[in-house]
């Protein structure tokens, strides 16, 4: 308090001399309760598992070995490539990519439409699109599950109007997971695209149409390069959380469609109880995400340089 009251010298903002003290709590809280834990998790991925959770403090590559190789039930057979976990990762990446694509297909026209409305209407439209995001993710996913069930309202509706002859089985398919992910993260796609389209100078489009380009050419050749960064940002923002998603695949995907999130969860909350393997899987997921973010950061840096 004394330090806070003491007046600052000339030549600096009032808060500059205090900056380290001001940032310190954030450093401590996140450094101690997140950065340190992630480092510890890295260490754990190289330890020996204790049955039913926990670790034995002995160095071991077993977790990573288990991820890649199958050595039989007792670990004495010659190693073969273990496809089980690789498949989970590939499936997760595919699902996240499909969800991103879905978000882009619906999100771009939506963002574009909203950004081209008169300014006083834009806020209301954005509000409409973002409200569901503020509803608890679990509740949204459960609602989606309820809607998509074989005997759920969607099928009943379609049957009643004779659109389909027999119920569609959407639940427990990869499509259901994609729909769930789309539902979870759509605003992350709409908002950055909206921001770039809103800043876009539409006289450029007018100039292009004036020079005989049709509208779709204008969209592709003139607008896309300008709003591209928004699309990339939106895609990363949807892809990254989708990759590690837990609720949508768990509730909508059924046993055959589980993703990395469920695999990790199983090691801690389920029956597998293999902490080093869970840590190793988390490390691999984290590396994937960091790579995606790194690519994004480089793109942003390049953008800013131009």
């Amino acid at each position: 308090m004394n330090r806070f009251r003491r007046s600052h010298g000339p030549g600096v903002g009032a808060f500059d001399p205090l900056k380290y003290w001001l940032i310190l709590p954030a450093w401590l809280v996140i450094g101690f309760f997140l950065l340190a834990p992630v480092c510890l998790m890295f260490v754990f991925s190289f330890l020996t598992k204790e049955f039913r959770g926990g670790v034995i403090w002995e160095f071991s590559l077993a977790a990573y070995d288990q991820f890649l190789f199958d050595r039989g039930l007792f670990g004495d057979e010659p190693p073969r490539i273990q496809w089980t976990y690789i498949t989970v990762f590939v499936r997760s990446i595919t699902q996240a990519a499909m969800a991103t694509l879905l978000c882009l297909l619906i999100g771009f026209p939506t963002a574009f439409y909203i950004a081209t409305r008169p300014p006083q209407l834009r806020a209301a439209w954005l509000f409409l699109v973002t409200v569901p995001y503020w509803v608890n993710l679990l509740i949204r996913t459960v609602s989606m599950k309820f809607l998509l069930r074989d005997t759920g309202p969607l099928n009943e509706f379609l049957l009643a109007f004779g659109v389909i002859g027999e119920p569609l089985s959407i639940i427990n398919t990869s499509l259901a997971v994609q729909l769930g992910l789309f539902y979870s993260y759509l605003p992350f796609m709409v908002l950055p695209i909206y921001a770039t389209v809103e800043r876009y100078d539409f006289t450029l489009s007018e100039a292009a149409t004036d020079l005989y380009a049709d509208k779709w050419t204008v969209l592709r050749r003139i607008m896309l390069p300008v709003v591209g960064p928004g699309i990339v940002a939106g895609s990363i923002l949807v892809f990254v959380p989708s990759l590690g998603a837990f609720l949508a695949p768990n509730l909508l995907g059924g046993a055959k469609n589980f993703m990395i999130g469920s695999l990790i969860d199983e090691q801690f909350n389920g029956n597998a109880g293999n902490w080093p393997f869970g840590s190793a899987t988390s490390m691999i997921l984290l590396s994937l995400v960091l790579m995606a973010l790194f690519v994004y950061a480089r793109q942003v840096a390049r953008q800013e340089r131009n």
Partner: peptide, 14 residues
Amino acid sequence: MVPEIVTAVATLIF
């Protein structure tokens, strides 16, 4: 930036 599930694992371990 860190996926929620990873944060969850790390926090539990810690």
